[in-house]
Design a protein around this nucleic acid. Structure first.
Lengths: 103, 103
DNA sequence: TAAATATATGTCAAATATGACATAATTTCA
DNA sequence: TGAAATTATGTCATATTTGACATATATTTA
Protein backbone atom coordinates (compact mmCIF):
# COMPACT_ATOMS: atom_id res chain seq x y z
CA UNK A 1 0.00 0.00 0.00
CA UNK A 2 1.33 3.37 -1.03
CA UNK A 3 0.25 5.21 2.09
CA UNK A 4 1.90 2.74 4.39
CA UNK A 5 5.19 2.91 2.57
CA UNK A 6 5.10 6.68 2.63
CA UNK A 7 4.41 6.52 6.32
CA UNK A 8 7.42 4.32 6.85
CA UNK A 9 9.60 6.64 4.80
CA UNK A 10 8.55 9.64 6.82
CA UNK A 11 8.96 7.91 10.14
CA UNK A 12 12.51 7.15 9.08
CA UNK A 13 13.09 10.82 8.43
CA UNK A 14 13.11 10.80 4.66
CA UNK A 15 12.51 14.19 3.18
CA UNK A 16 12.35 15.82 -0.24
CA UNK A 17 14.27 14.07 -2.99
CA UNK A 18 16.45 11.03 -2.47
CA UNK A 19 13.60 8.56 -2.09
CA UNK A 20 14.73 6.49 -5.03
CA UNK A 21 15.86 2.87 -4.87
CA UNK A 22 14.18 2.01 -1.62
CA UNK A 23 12.12 -1.01 -0.70
CA UNK A 24 9.68 -2.04 -3.37
CA UNK A 25 8.60 1.41 -4.39
CA UNK A 26 7.69 1.68 -8.03
CA UNK A 27 8.80 4.71 -10.04
CA UNK A 28 5.21 5.83 -9.88
CA UNK A 29 5.03 5.68 -6.11
CA UNK A 30 8.38 7.40 -5.76
CA UNK A 31 7.32 10.25 -8.01
CA UNK A 32 4.05 10.64 -6.16
CA UNK A 33 5.77 10.86 -2.78
CA UNK A 34 8.41 13.22 -4.11
CA UNK A 35 5.78 15.50 -5.58
CA UNK A 36 3.78 15.55 -2.39
CA UNK A 37 6.74 16.21 -0.15
CA UNK A 38 7.98 19.03 -2.35
CA UNK A 39 4.62 20.76 -2.25
CA UNK A 40 4.31 20.20 1.51
CA UNK A 41 7.71 21.66 2.22
CA UNK A 42 6.93 24.64 0.04
CA UNK A 43 3.69 25.21 1.90
CA UNK A 44 5.50 25.31 5.23
CA UNK A 45 8.11 27.67 3.86
CA UNK A 46 5.50 30.10 2.55
CA UNK A 47 3.49 30.05 5.77
CA UNK A 48 6.60 30.80 7.80
CA UNK A 49 7.71 33.50 5.35
CA UNK A 50 4.39 35.19 6.01
CA UNK A 51 4.88 34.82 9.77
CA UNK A 52 1.70 32.86 10.30
CA UNK A 53 1.20 30.21 12.96
CA UNK A 54 -0.50 26.98 11.98
CA UNK A 55 -3.59 28.13 13.87
CA UNK A 56 -3.73 31.41 11.96
CA UNK A 57 -3.24 29.69 8.64
CA UNK A 58 -5.81 27.03 9.51
CA UNK A 59 -8.40 29.79 9.95
CA UNK A 60 -7.49 31.25 6.57
CA UNK A 61 -8.22 27.98 4.82
CA UNK A 62 -11.11 27.00 7.10
CA UNK A 63 -9.33 23.99 8.48
CA UNK A 64 -7.69 23.07 11.77
CA UNK A 65 -4.20 23.33 13.26
CA UNK A 66 -3.84 19.58 13.31
CA UNK A 67 -4.63 19.28 9.64
CA UNK A 68 -2.18 22.04 8.78
CA UNK A 69 0.49 20.12 10.66
CA UNK A 70 -0.34 17.06 8.60
CA UNK A 71 -0.36 19.08 5.40
CA UNK A 72 3.13 20.33 6.09
CA UNK A 73 4.59 16.92 6.81
CA UNK A 74 3.02 15.26 3.78
CA UNK A 75 1.02 12.95 6.03
CA UNK A 76 -0.49 10.03 4.10
CA UNK A 77 -3.94 11.22 5.13
CA UNK A 78 -3.72 14.43 3.11
CA UNK A 79 -4.39 14.77 -0.57
CA UNK A 80 -2.36 16.71 -3.11
CA UNK A 81 -5.60 18.51 -3.79
CA UNK A 82 -5.67 20.03 -0.33
CA UNK A 83 -1.99 20.96 -0.45
CA UNK A 84 -2.49 22.73 -3.76
CA UNK A 85 -5.59 24.57 -2.59
CA UNK A 86 -3.65 25.69 0.48
CA UNK A 87 -0.80 26.98 -1.65
CA UNK A 88 -3.27 28.86 -3.82
CA UNK A 89 -4.81 30.39 -0.69
CA UNK A 90 -1.39 31.86 0.07
CA UNK A 91 -1.39 33.52 -3.32
CA UNK A 92 0.91 31.05 -5.00
CA UNK A 93 0.60 31.04 -8.80
CA UNK A 94 0.39 27.94 -10.93
CA UNK A 95 3.80 28.76 -12.34
CA UNK A 96 5.26 28.87 -8.86
CA UNK A 97 3.65 25.52 -8.12
CA UNK A 98 5.21 24.17 -11.31
CA UNK A 99 8.62 25.47 -10.24
CA UNK A 100 8.25 23.76 -6.89
CA UNK A 101 7.40 20.46 -8.52
CA UNK A 102 10.40 20.54 -10.83
CA UNK A 103 12.81 21.71 -8.14
CA UNK B 1 -19.50 26.35 -4.34
CA UNK B 2 -16.39 25.72 -6.41
CA UNK B 3 -17.55 22.46 -7.95
CA UNK B 4 -20.82 23.92 -9.12
CA UNK B 5 -19.13 26.88 -10.76
CA UNK B 6 -16.68 24.59 -12.47
CA UNK B 7 -19.54 22.49 -13.64
CA UNK B 8 -21.22 25.55 -15.12
CA UNK B 9 -18.01 26.58 -16.82
CA UNK B 10 -17.58 23.20 -18.40
CA UNK B 11 -21.18 22.93 -19.51
CA UNK B 12 -20.66 26.21 -21.30
CA UNK B 13 -17.69 24.73 -23.10
CA UNK B 14 -14.90 26.56 -21.29
CA UNK B 15 -11.58 24.88 -21.65
CA UNK B 16 -7.99 25.44 -20.64
CA UNK B 17 -6.99 28.99 -19.95
CA UNK B 18 -9.25 31.97 -20.37
CA UNK B 19 -11.38 31.31 -17.32
CA UNK B 20 -10.49 34.65 -15.74
CA UNK B 21 -12.95 37.43 -14.93
CA UNK B 22 -16.02 35.28 -14.92
CA UNK B 23 -18.82 35.16 -12.44
CA UNK B 24 -17.63 35.38 -8.84
CA UNK B 25 -14.64 33.14 -9.21
CA UNK B 26 -11.77 34.08 -6.93
CA UNK B 27 -8.21 34.00 -8.24
CA UNK B 28 -7.79 30.87 -6.17
CA UNK B 29 -10.71 29.08 -7.75
CA UNK B 30 -9.64 30.14 -11.22
CA UNK B 31 -6.12 28.82 -10.67
CA UNK B 32 -7.43 25.56 -9.32
CA UNK B 33 -9.71 24.99 -12.31
CA UNK B 34 -6.99 26.00 -14.75
CA UNK B 35 -4.55 23.61 -13.16
CA UNK B 36 -7.01 20.75 -13.22
CA UNK B 37 -8.05 21.29 -16.83
CA UNK B 38 -4.45 21.49 -17.99
CA UNK B 39 -3.60 18.19 -16.34
CA UNK B 40 -6.79 16.58 -17.65
CA UNK B 41 -6.12 17.65 -21.20
CA UNK B 42 -2.56 16.39 -20.96
CA UNK B 43 -3.79 13.05 -19.69
CA UNK B 44 -6.09 12.64 -22.67
CA UNK B 45 -3.32 13.60 -25.05
CA UNK B 46 -0.90 11.08 -23.61
CA UNK B 47 -3.46 8.27 -23.63
CA UNK B 48 -4.25 8.94 -27.26
CA UNK B 49 -0.56 9.22 -28.16
CA UNK B 50 -0.15 5.72 -26.76
CA UNK B 51 -3.16 4.53 -28.76
CA UNK B 52 -5.07 3.32 -25.76
CA UNK B 53 -8.86 3.32 -25.45
CA UNK B 54 -10.39 4.55 -22.21
CA UNK B 55 -11.26 0.96 -21.35
CA UNK B 56 -7.68 -0.19 -21.82
CA UNK B 57 -6.31 2.69 -19.81
CA UNK B 58 -8.92 2.14 -17.09
CA UNK B 59 -7.60 -1.39 -16.63
CA UNK B 60 -4.04 -0.10 -16.35
CA UNK B 61 -4.97 2.15 -13.46
CA UNK B 62 -7.53 -0.22 -11.96
CA UNK B 63 -10.42 2.10 -12.58
CA UNK B 64 -13.37 2.19 -14.97
CA UNK B 65 -14.04 3.66 -18.40
CA UNK B 66 -16.54 6.09 -16.98
CA UNK B 67 -14.07 7.43 -14.46
CA UNK B 68 -11.42 7.84 -17.15
CA UNK B 69 -13.91 9.86 -19.18
CA UNK B 70 -14.46 12.07 -16.15
CA UNK B 71 -10.75 12.35 -15.52
CA UNK B 72 -10.17 13.60 -19.04
CA UNK B 73 -12.87 16.24 -18.91
CA UNK B 74 -11.84 17.58 -15.51
CA UNK B 75 -15.19 16.59 -14.05
CA UNK B 76 -15.81 18.21 -10.65
CA UNK B 77 -16.05 14.75 -9.13
CA UNK B 78 -12.41 13.92 -9.82
CA UNK B 79 -9.47 14.99 -7.71
CA UNK B 80 -6.15 16.36 -8.90
CA UNK B 81 -4.67 13.46 -6.96
CA UNK B 82 -6.21 10.89 -9.29
CA UNK B 83 -5.28 12.86 -12.40
CA UNK B 84 -1.66 13.03 -11.23
CA UNK B 85 -1.53 9.35 -10.31
CA UNK B 86 -2.93 8.56 -13.76
CA UNK B 87 -0.28 10.67 -15.44
CA UNK B 88 2.41 8.93 -13.43
CA UNK B 89 0.98 5.57 -14.48
CA UNK B 90 1.63 6.61 -18.08
CA UNK B 91 5.26 7.20 -17.22
CA UNK B 92 5.04 10.96 -16.99
CA UNK B 93 7.83 12.51 -14.94
CA UNK B 94 7.35 15.20 -12.33
CA UNK B 95 9.18 17.64 -14.58
CA UNK B 96 6.75 16.92 -17.37
CA UNK B 97 3.87 17.47 -14.99
CA UNK B 98 5.45 20.78 -14.00
CA UNK B 99 5.74 21.78 -17.65
CA UNK B 100 2.09 20.98 -18.20
CA UNK B 101 1.06 23.13 -15.26
CA UNK B 102 3.03 26.13 -16.41
CA UNK B 103 1.97 25.80 -20.04
C1' DT C 1 14.44 26.52 34.68
C1' DA C 2 9.03 26.82 34.07
C1' DA C 3 5.23 28.77 31.78
C1' DA C 4 3.54 29.97 27.44
C1' DT C 5 3.28 29.22 22.72
C1' DA C 6 3.58 26.37 18.76
C1' DT C 7 3.55 22.01 16.43
C1' DA C 8 2.69 16.82 16.18
C1' DT C 9 -0.10 12.65 16.60
C1' DG C 10 -4.21 9.75 17.20
C1' DT C 11 -9.08 9.27 16.60
C1' DC C 12 -13.66 9.78 14.65
C1' DA C 13 -18.07 11.39 12.48
C1' DA C 14 -19.19 13.84 8.40
C1' DA C 15 -17.97 15.15 3.82
C1' DT C 16 -16.07 14.01 -0.54
C1' DA C 17 -14.00 10.92 -4.08
C1' DT C 18 -14.05 6.45 -6.13
C1' DG C 19 -15.09 2.23 -9.02
C1' DA C 20 -18.72 0.13 -11.05
C1' DC C 21 -22.82 -0.23 -13.44
C1' DA C 22 -26.46 1.16 -16.86
C1' DT C 23 -27.24 3.61 -20.68
C1' DA C 24 -26.91 7.68 -23.74
C1' DA C 25 -24.31 10.11 -27.12
C1' DT C 26 -20.71 10.30 -30.33
C1' DT C 27 -17.23 8.63 -33.51
C1' DT C 28 -15.28 5.22 -36.71
C1' DC C 29 -15.40 2.55 -40.66
C1' DA C 30 -17.13 -1.15 -43.81
C1' DT D 1 -26.02 4.59 -44.47
C1' DG D 2 -25.75 1.67 -40.03
C1' DA D 3 -23.53 -1.40 -36.95
C1' DA D 4 -19.56 -1.54 -34.00
C1' DA D 5 -16.53 0.81 -31.16
C1' DT D 6 -15.59 4.52 -28.25
C1' DT D 7 -16.65 8.13 -25.12
C1' DA D 8 -20.05 10.73 -22.03
C1' DT D 9 -23.38 11.10 -18.28
C1' DG D 10 -26.06 9.77 -14.23
C1' DT D 11 -26.33 7.11 -10.08
C1' DC D 12 -24.94 4.69 -6.02
C1' DA D 13 -22.58 1.84 -2.35
C1' DT D 14 -18.02 1.83 -0.64
C1' DA D 15 -13.64 3.96 0.32
C1' DT D 16 -10.90 7.82 1.35
C1' DT D 17 -10.29 12.53 2.95
C1' DT D 18 -11.57 16.10 6.00
C1' DG D 19 -12.23 19.26 10.11
C1' DA D 20 -12.37 18.94 14.75
C1' DC D 21 -11.16 17.46 19.12
C1' DA D 22 -8.00 15.71 22.82
C1' DT D 23 -3.62 15.43 24.11
C1' DA D 24 1.38 14.72 23.49
C1' DT D 25 5.64 16.76 22.24
C1' DA D 26 8.63 20.36 20.95
C1' DT D 27 10.03 25.27 20.90
C1' DT D 28 10.17 29.94 22.55
C1' DT D 29 10.48 33.35 25.98
C1' DA D 30 10.36 35.49 30.55
Amino acid sequence: MTSEKQEILEKKGWKIGSVKDFLGLTEEEESYIDLKLKLSANLRKLRIDRKLTQIEFARMIKSSQSRVAKLETGDPSVSIDLIIRSLLALGTSNKEIARTISS
